[in-house]
Amino acid sequence: MDEKGSELSAKDHARIAQQFIEAIPHAKALELRVDDLGSGKAQISMPWAEYLVGDPRTGVIHGGVISTLMDTCSGAAVMAHPSGPRSTATIDLRIDYMRAATPRQRIVATAECYHMTRNVAFIRAVAVDEDSENPVATATGAFTVER
């Protein structure tokens, strides 16, 4: 992810980010996949899995899983900012849960770093399942920026 000032395509960025994610044990355990990355934006998705279920009556995935996906995707958006942060950490993250994610469908998170200062990045993110018009959850957060 330490590619500041380089002339890489969005595809290269996504490939590098995927390698970065594979090196994160928890992201790997959740089978996170980088779909898109570049200029302060990121899209990361993950498959439904039995062991992630929070409500066995319905098979709906636990909210905590959505938190992880949103957090990772937001961090990736910060790292993909053109100003080239060296590293980042979450200061706070608020998640609003709009509806239950449909069991057995992929969940796709999209995050955008909408404001950047020297030390802080502000992000918003949204997660959807196959019904992409109706968000499952939205998030807003603040992240540290190490230069």
């Binding site: 044990p25 928890h26 905590g64």
Partner: peptide, 20 residues
Amino acid sequence: QKLIGNPSLPALHGGVTAAF
């Protein structure tokens, strides 16, 4: 080990902390 989000520090994944 599967709870790790930053292998170089190492540190727990922020999402794991949130889920906990």
